[in-house]
Design a protein around this nucleic acid. Structure first.
Length: 240
DNA sequence: GCGACAG
DNA sequence: ATCTTGTCGC
């Protein structure tokens, strides 16, 4: 596990954070095919918080895209770098996520984020932001539709419906399990929406959420627990 | 103007 | 995200 500092010059206000998004948005690359689903490595990233102790833990878990076996993993812990503000989630997660990615022993391949990419008030969600900062292909897979609208996809797994911001298709509601609430997929960086959905389906042979985010979620919670224990170890209770 | 709103 | 017991089901 590595420790992270909040970067110098990190935005301190919502206005400054929005300005960063408006500037970095121009660097997003859309329309690249991205890596073929089921090949190479796919990395899940996720974050867990303890607001009381001002702690944040991030995890990056690399899977073999074909077997979905864990190939490598890394964690990082730091201070919370921004409050939760809808539309500014990236400023809360990115420093620690970057540290976890950098601690990996080899390249992450495609990165799957727990949240949005293009589907964002200013079209620059967490997955877009992480893609621009790392240059890696990224996709966003969220559990909720945020403020966007969609028609419920058909019941079979693999069915999809456009995720709409007015008339713009900013992502897709994708059914990963028959008859179960869909996930909300959007493009991050250097992938197409079709590619992002194909990857998501390849990562969900059994559960609604991608295997990548499931593994990363479990690992960052473990890392947060260990960071807490380190900060204030449990008092030994005498056995009776 | 007010509320809703990824994690 | 996080707070939280039992409970239904494979």
């Amino acid at each position: 596990m590595t420790t992270v500092e909040i970067p110098a010059g990190w935005p301190a206000t919502e206005e400054a954070a929005r300005a960063v998004q408006d500037e970095l948005r121009a660097r997003v690359v859309l329309g690249e095919p991205g890596p073929p689903p089921g090949t190479g490595h796919v990395t899940g990233v996720d974050v867990a918080y303890d607001d009381e102790r001002d702690l944040v833990a991030a995890a990056a878990v690399v899977l073999d895209a074909a077997s979905l076996e864990v190939v490598a993993e890394a964690t990082a812990v730091g201070r919370i770098s921004f409050p939760y503000v809808p539309g500014l989630l990236a400023f809360r997660e990115i420093p620690t996520v970057l540290a976890a990615l950098e601690a990996l022993p080899h390249p992450p391949g495609l990165v799957v984020c727990d949240g949005y990419g293009l589907a964002h008030p200013r079209r620059f969600g967490l997955a877009s932001h992480l893609g621009v900062l790392t240059g890696l292909p990224t996709v966003g897979v969220a559990k909720n539709p945020f403020a966007f609208t969609y028609d419920d996809p058909d019941a079979p797994r693999g069915s999809a419906a456009p995720l709409l911001a007015g008339d713009d298709e900013v992502g897709r509601a994708l059914r990963t399990r028959a008859g179960v609430k869909p996930v909300f997929v959007s493009v991050g960086h250097r992938v197409t929406l079709d590619g992002a959905c194909a990857h998501t389906l390849a990562l969900t042979p059994r559960f609604r959420l991608p295997e990548t985010t499931r593994r990363a979620d479990a690992l960052c919670r473990r890392a947060l627990r260990e960071a807490k224990d380190h900060a204030s170890p449990a008092v030994a209770r005498p056995v009776t």
